[in-house]
């Protein structure tokens, strides 16, 4: 169920391995590096930089009204990388510093749920 992922999606909460200190986003139940199951929640700062990006003109279902929109791989300052949407920008390039913000991802028609999630915008 999508609601189980609200914390990781809206609050950038991943996990940290208590054995080898490796950080993960999205959160993992088992450490990919040392196989430990001893992990705890970790909140990322929301600061990072763009590794790669692309403008989407053939939208995913539910994203039609936002077209065109920009998808990027962002490397968080703590290390992990994630795929995300970039908003509120004039011009971005590889290396542009960004910060997280909570935005609407998509809405399920007029009567369905509003799905929120973390996106990124150029940092101040």
């Amino acid at each position: 169920m999508a609601w189980r992922r609200i914390k990781q999606r809206n609050c950038l909460i991943g996990s940290e391995c208590n054995e080898c200190k490796t950080l993960f986003y999205p959160p993992k139940l088992k450490c990919k590096k040392c196989s430990s199951s001893n992990l705890s929640e970790f909140k990322f700062s929301g600061k990072g930089s763009i590794v790669s990006f692309s403008e989407i003109r053939n939208p995913l279902y539910g994203f039609e009204k936002q077209t065109p929109y920009t998808i990027a791989i962002v490397k968080l300052e703590e290390g992990p990388m994630l795929t995300t949407q970039i908003v509120d920008f004039d011009k971005i390039e590889i290396g542009t510093k960004v910060e997280s913000c909570l935005r609407v991802m998509h809405t399920e028609g007029h009567s369905g749920m509003i799905q929120y999630g973390t996106k990124f915008k150029p940092a101040e």
Partner: peptide
Amino acid sequence: PAIDEDTAT
């Protein structure tokens, strides 16, 4: 608001 902003965000 931007297209993906609302009262809550």
